[in-house]
Design a protein around this nucleic acid. Structure first.
Lengths: 142, 142
DNA sequence: AGAAGTAGTTGTGTGTTGCAACTATTTTAT
DNA sequence: ATAAAATAGTTGCAACACACAACTACTTCT
């Protein structure tokens, strides 16, 4: 049963990583002037450029009602723009305003800088191995 | 700037892992008959056997007021027991009841089984490398 | 044209969270 | 020894996050 032990090791180490990432996210939060959920949404919208509500909800793993309200807040705060899709008027297209884009850029930069720092703290000869490991682990999570 | 690219790769891959872990936690949740925050607290209490409120709050990264309420709910639901520490009566000692311990055991088992499955899906010759990689990454997060 | 399906919004209820103000107790400093 | 400072925990408050169910508006299928 040495496998059982190592599986527990894996669980524990992932737990620790989760904790660290949680702290990271909390710190990131304060800066942007938007709430947690809003920040996530902004990043997701910024990456997609132009998305529908359900797509956004799916990509964040949220109910569409929750998403609708979050987007509504973002609209009220002037970070995103919501329009009816002329092609199919059931859809709305959601995209960042200039102001929202600023937040997006800022979050991206902060996160990239942070990970740049982490990356540099990894010994040179271990870097490839780490990316490889994550890839394998991701597929093992299936 | 190839380093910048790889740091972004790292960020992205961790993002994906986070997503998977989030889904995992959601599934784990439904089973135990307790809420998300309560479940986390039970695991932490179960591990520590006997803890004070602030210790618990720290280990979960929460405000002590939030923790107090969560513990209160757990007490009301009969999962934990709260007593004044006779040695220093400012402290309370928090521990699982029998019923709470059952939940704890169940969560532990579920999680361990899950990670056992993940572990087995990792190719044999990659397992050591993965544990090693996480260890390095954790220290790089500092 | 009517039925069935899809996108999104709103009503409602629960849970989570932190800050600030409070009580109770213990420790420190004068 | 007693007043002041520190510590542990609780409660008032206000905001956010979230899902389910019921709804409207639109489109596609038959």
């Amino acid at each position: 049963m040495e496998d059982g032990v190592s599986a527990k090791e894996l669980r524990e180490i992932i737990r620790q990583l989760e904790r660290k990432l949680g702290i990271l996210e909390k710190n990131e939060m304060g800066c942007c002037g938007v709430s947690f959920a809003q920040c996530h949404a902004i990043v997701e919208i910024g990456r997609g450029k132009k998305v529908s509500l359900n797509l956004l909800a799916d990509s964040l793993g949220l109910d569409s009602s929750t998403m609708s309200r979050t987007v509504n807040n973002l609209v009220n705060n002037g970070f995103v723009q919501r329009e009816l899709d002329p092609g199919d008027r059931r859809y709305v297209t959601i995209q960042l305003t200039e102001s929202g884009n600023k937040v997006f850029q800022h979050v991206e930069e902060t996160m990239n800088n942070y990970f740049q720092g982490v990356w540099e703290r990894i010994p040179n000869d271990k870097r490839a191995q780490i990316l490889d490991s994550f890839q394998i682990l991701l597929t093992a999570f299936q």
